[in-house]
Design a protein around this nucleic acid. Sequence first.
DNA 1: TTGAAAGCGCTAACAT
DNA 2: ATGTTAGCGCTTTCAA
Lengths: 330, 330
Amino acid sequence: MCAKKVTIREVAKRAGVSIATVSQILNGKAMNFNPLTVQKVQAARDELGYKADHLARQMVGKQSKTIGILVPEITNSFFSTLVKGIEEELLFSGYISMLCNGGFNGAKEEKALLELAKRGVDGFIIASPSISDEVLKEVLQVKKRPVIVLDQKTTAERSDEVTTDDFNGGLLAALYLKKMGHTKVAVIVPDLATENISCRLQGFLTEFPQALQIKTKLSKSGGQAVVAELLEQNIEAVFALSDELAFGIYLGMRQNGKSIPNDLSVIGYDDVEMCRYVTPALTTVAQPIYELGKQAADLMIKRLATPTSPYVKRVLPVKLEIRGSVKVKN
Amino acid sequence: MCAKKVTIREVAKRAGVSIATVSQILNGKAMNFNPLTVQKVQAARDELGYKADHLARQMVGKQSKTIGILVPEITNSFFSTLVKGIEEELLFSGYISMLCNGGFNGAKEEKALLELAKRGVDGFIIASPSISDEVLKEVLQVKKRPVIVLDQKTTAERSDEVTTDDFNGGLLAALYLKKMGHTKVAVIVPDLATENISCRLQGFLTEFPQALQIKTKLSKSGGQAVVAELLEQNIEAVFALSDELAFGIYLGMRQNGKSIPNDLSVIGYDDVEMCRYVTPALTTVAQPIYELGKQAADLMIKRLATPTSPYVKRVLPVKLEIRGSVKVKN
DNA sequence: TTGAAAGCGCTAACAT
DNA sequence: ATGTTAGCGCTTTCAA
C-alpha cells in the first residue's frame, strides 16, 4: 500500500554497482562511465521509480530549488498578479515558491523572511515596501543568497532589478489629463512614498507642478477618505497613484451622490483586472504586472545559474489605457 | 562578514557537553537534565546564536513545518483571500506556506503537487476543483500526509473538512429575490459544477424550480458572455454563482447599454472585496472566505499535532449582504 | 571506469 | 544525568 521510499542504495544494488556510481550517472556525469553501466543504472532507476530525495540533497549543499517570496498583501490584485507571474515562471523551471504575506507589518515580514531562510530557499523575491535594509542584510548574512527587490526602492547595484518606467507613467497620465482640457487637478500621494511611487509623482508634476497634493493611505479606504477634500476644492481631475486608490474614490463619489466622470475625472495606475469592470471603466496607466513577475523570476533563475555574472537592470514599459473615467472638457 | 553556520557541535564544545545533550535540552527534554547543564547549554546557544538546521532536522524524520497549498487561480479575489487566511494562521504557528497556482490545468496541478511532495511538506491544503482523486492518492502514496480539500467536492471521511453552508446560501439568494418580487429569474451555472456549487444551485432551485439555467464558464468572461441570452429571455433577476460571474454580467450589461438593477437585478456569491466598489454595489451571499482559510489551516495544524484523532467537519455560516444590485419590483 | 569512505547537521536508541 | 554511536539519503573527493 504505502510505497516505501526507494533510495539510491536499492538502485545501486539492483544495477550491481556502487551508490557513488549511481549518483554520478544520475547527475549528468554519465559520460565518464561505461555506456553499459549507464544503461543498467538507468534501467534500475526506472524499474524502481527512483527519485532522488530533495532534502538529502540539500543537506550536502545543493540548491533547494525553492524561492522565497514576500509580498505585503496578496489580496491586492496587483500583488496576486505579480505572484502569479513569478510562480508560473518559477515552476516552469522546477522551482517552487514559498509565499509569505507581510501584511504591512514589519515584525511579521521579518519573521517570514527568517522562516524562509531557515528552510533553505535559494533566493528571495521581495515586493514589500517596508522591509528595511538592515533586516535584509541580516537575513542574508548566513549564506549569500540572491535577492530581487520589486516595486519599491531600488537596491542600487546590490542585486538584479526589474522596474517599470514609473516616471513616464506619471507623465503619460498628466499629458492625457492636459489633453482632455483639465487644469484644476489633484494627485493623491501616500504618506510615505516608495521610490517608484515618487517617480510617478515626479513624472506627473513635470506637467502639473501646481497640482494639489493630497496625502492618504495607498488603499481603497485611503481613496474613499479623500473624496471630501476633492469635492471641497472643486477638483476637476485626479490622478490616483494606484487603481486601488481609484476604486476607493469611486465609492466615495457614489456615497456623495456624485458621478464619474461628470463631477470628477479620475485616472488610475496599474491596470488591475477590475479596471474594466467598474463603472465607468477606469482609465489608467498600465504596468505589465504579470510580465514584471515573470521577469523577476527569470532574473532570479539566471542569477542562480551564474551567480557571478554582473547585475542587470530591466525596465519595462508602461502605457496609457484609455477607458471611460476621464471626460473631455470643453 | 559571512557569519558561518554555527552547528550543534560548537554549542556542545562551548558548553562542555556532548552534542546529544545539547540536542535533548534544546528540544524540550530539559527536565531530565541537571539545571546547571541546562543553563550552560542555553547560554552557549545564546552566545553563539545557534539555530538548529531545519533541513538536517527534516532528514532525521521530523516535520518540515511547511504546508503545500494549491489553488486554481491566485489572481481571483476569492482565492487570494483564502490564501491569506491560510497563510496567516499557518505562519502564526511557525508553519510556512508553499503556494502553487494550478491555473485550471490538470498537468500543472499534478506537477505542482509532486514538487511540493518532493520538498517534504507536512500536509496539503488543496482548493483546486480539477484535481482528481487518483492524482491525490498517488501524491500521498509515499508518505501518509494529511490533506484538506477546500471549496469543491468533499473527501468523504478521508480527511478533515471545512465548508460553508452552500445549500443555505442558494436558498437565501432565492428567498431574497422572491421577496423583492421577482419571478422571471435565471441562474448561471458552470459547465461542470463542483459539489459545493451544486449545493448552492440546489438551495436556489428549491424556491425557483423553474428558473432558467444558463451554462457558462465560472469567470468574468463567462458572465459577460451570458448577458445576451439574459436580455433576450427578458429575465428580471439573475443569480450568479460567484461574484466574478456577476462582475462579468455588469460589464456585459454596460456594453449593451443596459443598467443594473433597472434592467436586470443581479445577486452574486462570495462577497469578495470588490463587491462594494462596483456600481451599483453588488448584493451577494457572503461566505466567510478569510475565516475559511484560517479554519482550514487550524484543522491542518491540529491534525499534524494529533494525527490519529477522528476527522472533524466544520461548516461555516453564510449570510446575505444586501447592497444595490437588486431592485424591488412593484 | 568504478568503489570506499567521509561527511552534511541533526536526532534517538542504547550505553554508561 | 550524560555520552556514544548509528543512521537519515545523498554527493564528492580520493583510491583502486
